[in-house]
Design a protein around this nucleic acid. Structure first.
Lengths: 220, 220
DNA sequence: TAGATTGTTAATCGATTAACAATC
DNA sequence: TAGATTGTTAATCGATTAACAATC
């Protein structure tokens, strides 16, 4: 935030990929995994797109940002494309994750199936409530928040999930970042700032319902 | 999905508002609510935008889709703009909501503070598990899923939250729609189809972590 | 070979930003 | 009045779609 006046002209080289493309990549991955379970070996951009309400051109263009994964005349081999997308997203390896805040939502997230299925392993949970500390939920040990710096380092935790009230979200974010976490998933209904080099994704469940409300009222 | 070949040329008239604009509207609302709590009476497009990493022009343009809410030379009066945005989103009134599926996530969502704070009232929860049925969580009665059609109608439920496994998500969606629900918030990691006139918003928590993973790997 | 389907270029469409007269 | 800030138009930028040669 200090000496940045000029655009980073050559830097990551990859920053040309639109956010929307990366989001669709996750949808392709999910759909491909369903196709594989249904016993399909290959698929086409037209078929894959139709399942998601997208054009065939968009599917091909999205994938073309990252390489050539298809076979002209044949389409995409499902397991092959799954592997490629997981590599692109970085979920071909396991991520070690911490959850901070064991209220309703945080507690639910510790045991969330979808996380482990996609390569995210919740290895630690933190709270201030002494009655929760030193127990386990779904195999995951619960620590007092004071031990966050220590545990994050020892357990080599790289991602943090913030599930505390809005009022403490920024403080928790700062603590996680100081401890060495590189990415945050924030469920608190507040905008959080992080230093450059740290990533943040926000999910506000009430906002999702608001979007739905708008769509219903405007019949969309 | 059957006889649709031509585009709906004149229909809702409102379908010219980009999805991204509506999403930012929710962010403006959230930020304004924080400003009010901090005792601020007015704000400017520059200030509001800065808090969200947006330009002043974008804030003004977004709001201009819906009307003229600002005061030249002064800015926006916070409580006034909050009211306007809530009216636009449809959250100035209470929505009656049902949750289907009382696993980890569904159970957490029944008591989710953020929902009630923004005008969403969870008035019924459904599950197949007989040990859960006929109890209450956080004041909300739990019914057997067989009673869904009856309760949705009696309770005038207009929104449904799907928190069941992927395998049963489409069936639950169909049941909710048949019963008269007009909007669905889907947490199951699967693409769901709904008839025209019904809205659906999907939230896949694993996908959110995947997006974070991509950002971390590509330092964004 | 004929049919299917890719990757990619060019054309189109839509969203964001910059600029500024109008207003308080 | 001078300074601040809006709403809106025009210019810019970026994303999506269409088209098609290359490939299996």
């Amino acid at each position: 935030m200090t000496d940045s006046e000029e655009k980073p002209i050559e830097f990551g080289a990859e920053s040309s990929v639109p956010k929307a493309v990366v989001n669709r990549l996750s949808l392709y991955l999910r759909e491909l995994q369903h196709l594989i379970r249904d016993g399909r070996e290959t698929t086409s951009s037209t078929f894959l797109g139709a399942r998601l309400g997208l054009t065939d051109a968009q599917v091909r263009k999205d994938l073309a940002y990252f390489g050539q994964f298809g076979h002209p005349g044949i389409g995409y081999r499902c397991p092959e494309l799954v592997q490629e997308i997981r590599r692109i997203l970085g979920t071909h390896r396991q991520w070690r994750v911490a959850i901070v805040g064991l209220g309703n939502l945080g507690t639910a997230l510790v045991g969330h199936r979808g996380f482990s299925e996609q390569g995210f392993r919740v290895v630690a949970a933190f709270d201030t409530d002494l009655t929760k500390v030193d127990r386990k939920i779904h195999e995951t040990p619960i620590y007092h928040i004071d031990r966050l710096p220590q545990i994050v380092q020892e357990e080599e935790i790289k991602l943090g999930i913030i599930a505390v009230p809005a009022a403490s979200a920024q403080i928790v974010a700062d603590a996680l970042v100081s401890a060495g976490v590189e990415g945050l998933l924030n469920f608190a209904p507040v905008t959080i700032s992080v230093p450059e080099g740290v990533s943040i994704v926000g999910v506000d469940l009430a906002i999702e319902l608001e979007q739905l409300s708008f769509n219903v009222v405007n019949r969309q």
